[in-house]
Design a protein around this nucleic acid. Structure first.
Length: 616
RNA sequence: GGGCCAGUAGCUCAAUUGGUUAGAGUAUCGGACUGUCGAUCCGAGGGUUGCGGGUUCGAGUCCCGUCUGGCCCGCCA
């Protein structure tokens, strides 16, 4: 990449010079990557974002003054070097550098800025803890690896914009400061100085606005947009994050799939040069839950779940009282078989650790059995209790062989699914079936389709929308909206990649009668809904087209695309898992007068004085 | 709100069962060296073992509390 125009700082970038430039007088500027003083000749590796160029200072050619100046240079100083491009002798070619065939014979060195010794080394293979990297993010980002990630993110966005534009989409911006509506994530609040006591909410997504754009006839809308959610964080969640949000009119589910598959294919091709296979496979939600306990399963390895509920029911618990109690109470039973080769590497102490692991997720314990002597359960805790008939059938259902280790979980469905899904992932990573992070060359894209429209809220004793209240029920399930809400599936879809949900959306309800039926099934007072969502429901009375859309979790997608360790790696300036920006210290208390201006008074406990004053 | 893990030099780590002066690599600084490219060689500086308390003749190590960081559950698309 050449410089924009030759100026006093540089005629070329540090990644630009080649053999064809030999003989040219050039000026380069950058950071001192390394300084190798051989006693006579000095080598300065000069780095900018575009690459590294070696500058040589041989007193005979450079003159004594330039040589002495070069000797004073230190790491990360910002310098300008003038010199002549020279061809390297064959034995001194550096094949690791793109500029490795040449070097710049320096004749002049100017220090543009000195630099303190950085707390982290500026190198690709840096092995520093993330908190140090985050505190000095501007240095962390100076590393080539991080610059390449930023570049990949940009290329992915370009591929997406180009693709969607070619498909007739229009990018429309929507407000960040919006009216709070109930349900969904906890919003960040913004007090209004002009309307004391009132608040904006920062948009959790442009959901309602994009539906209004459909009513407006925009037809194909998209936006690469920031979203805000004040929820607890995870490795794949930031309080402010980016979505590729899109919505289309007069479409069916398949139209949206085609568009999103097109985006993914463009991104993977433009950024990685990889052709991914489309269309993506579609997996029913029920299948995903049964086989992997999860609506975003990682299918790159086995250790699939076996649903044992009916088998246990058939045997009335098979002698195991707690299992009977669980299934009688409507709970479920699931098993995972760990094959012999991995089971042998799992001594009793390891099983105890796994038990601690699952108890941390709400499990009461971890039932297990080690298969020996043609199907016996050896010294497993349940071995005495279980009767032969159920044990035999259970072994068969799980394909158990001698030496295998079986794990079981039984109890309320939600707990069993969570525990078993996480146990499977844990075992998969532990036994090297999937990498700690990254794709290992396998990009497993698929759709999860036909999830239930409603979830039963045990506490409130009523059905609630599993996604949001505007998701269209499947046509064939309409008759059951009132009679059997639990069996109603909907036209919602999630795109999964290697165990992460990277997009989710739905076909929306555009007709008032269906919307009313859904509200009724949820036992929601329509007047109340009208009050909160009046603008949307009003709009829908003026000719809402059939429409649907999807939102791509952009950071998550780029994270997986770049195979970086944490999603934070694809943010220039991320927050940590407590929502704190470790570089600038946000969030922070604000000036008392600012608080007064917006009629806000803090009731938070007094903050303890910081232990050590933060200083760089 | 809960579970698990970690905290020792600027950075990454080590330190036997609780044992006497807390080490190494790297970075930094100084010296040597005219073709290096993760330069090499020689030397030097660098520590309140996160913090507070306890047990002990003796604590980096054990116990309690606390803070910080990370991962997960709850929560959230």
């Amino acid at each position: 990449m050449p410089t924009l125009r030759p100026n006093k700082y540089r005629t070329h970038t540090c990644g630009e010079l080649r053999e064809t430039d030999v003989g040219k007088e050039v000026v380069l500027s950058g950071w001192v990557e390394s300084n190798r003083d051989m006693g006579g000749v000095i080598f300065i590796d000069l780095r900018d974002r575009h690459g590294i160029t070696q500058c040589v200072f041989d007193p005979k050619r450079s003159g004594q003054a330039a040589h002495d100046d070069a000797a004073k240079l230190r790491g990360e100083w910002v310098v300008r070097v003038k010199g002549t491009v020279g061809k390297r002798p064959p034995e001194m070619i550096n094949t690791k550098l793109e500029t490795g065939l040449i070097e710049v014979d320096g004749t002049e060195v100017e220090v543009l800025n000195e630099a303190k010794t950085p707390p982290i080394e500026i190198r690709d293979d840096l092995d520093a803890n993330e908190d140090v990297r985050l505190k000095y993010r501007y240095l962390d980002l100076r590393r080539g690896k991080m610059q390449r990630v930023l570049k990949m993110r940009h290329k992915a966005a370009m591929a997406t914009r180009n693709f969607l534009t070619a498909q007739g989409f229009t990018e429309v911006e929507t407000p960040f400061m919006i009216k709070w509506t109930p349900g969904g994530a906890r919003p960040f609040l913004v007090p209004s100085r002009l309307n004391l006591g009132k608040f904006y909410a920062l948009a959790e997504s442009p959901q309602l606005f994009k539906q209004l754009l459909m009513v407006a006839g925009t037809d194909r809308y998209y936006q690469i947009v920031r979203c805000f959610r004040d929820e607890d964080l995870r490795i794949d969640r930031q309080p402010e994050f980016t979505q590729v949000d899109l919505e289309m009119s007069f479409v069916e589910q398949d139209d949206i799939f085609t568009v999103v598959e097109g985006i993914m294919a463009s991104v993977w091709k433009d950024v990685l040069g990889i052709e991914i296979k489309t269309p993506f496979e579609r997996v029913p939600y029920d299948t995903a839950m049964a086989r992997w306990g999860n609506d975003k399963p990682d299918r790159r390895f086995g250790l699939e779940h076996v649903v044992l509920t009916d088998l246990v029911k058939k045997h009335d618990g098979g002698g195991i009282k707690i299992m009977k109690t669980v299934v009688d109470a409507g709970g479920i039973v699931k098993g995972i078989r760990l094959p012999k080769e991995f089971a042998e590497a799992t001594p009793r102490a390891q099983i105890d650790k796994l038990e601690t692991f699952v108890k941390g997720m709400g499990a009461k314990g971890l039932a297990w059995a080690r298969i020996e002597n043609g199907g016996s359960w050896g010294k497993a805790p349940l071995a005495k209790a279980i009767n032969d008939a159920m044990r035999t059938e259970l072994n068969a259902a799980m394909g158990a062989q001698d030496g295998d280790l079986l794990f079981f979980q039984f109890g309320p469905e939600a707990m069993v699914q969570t525990v078993m899904a996480n146990l499977r992932l844990h075992l998969g990573k532990k036994h090297g079936l999937i990498p700690e992070f990254g794709s290992a060359g396998t990009w497993d894209f698929f759709w999860v389709v036909d999830p239930p429209l409603f979830e039963y809220d045990e506490e409130a004793k009523k059905w609630a929308a599993a996604h949001h209240a505007f998701t269209m029920p499947r046509a064939e399930d309409m008759p059951y909206l009132q009679s059997d809400p639990g069996r109603v599936k909907c036209t919602r879809y999630d795109l999964v990649l290697n165990g992460y949900e990277i997009a989710g959306g739905s076909v929306r309800i555009h007709r008032g009668d269906i919307q009313s039926a859904v509200f009724r099934a949820m036992g929601i007072d329509e007047e109340e809904v009208r009050e909160k969502f009046a603008f949307l429901l009003d709009a829908f009375q003026y000719g809402a087209p059939p429409h649907g859309g999807i939102a791509v979790g952009w950071d998550r997608l780029v994270w997986l695309l770049t195979e970086t360790e944490a999603m934070r790696d694809v943010f220039a300036f991320p927050k940590n898992n407590r929502g704190v920006d470790m570089m600038n210290g946000s969030p922070a208390v604000v000036d008392a007068q600012l608080m007064k201006d917006v009629a806000i008074q803090s009731v938070a406990p007094e903050e303890e004085p910081a232990e050590k004053p933060a200083q760089a």
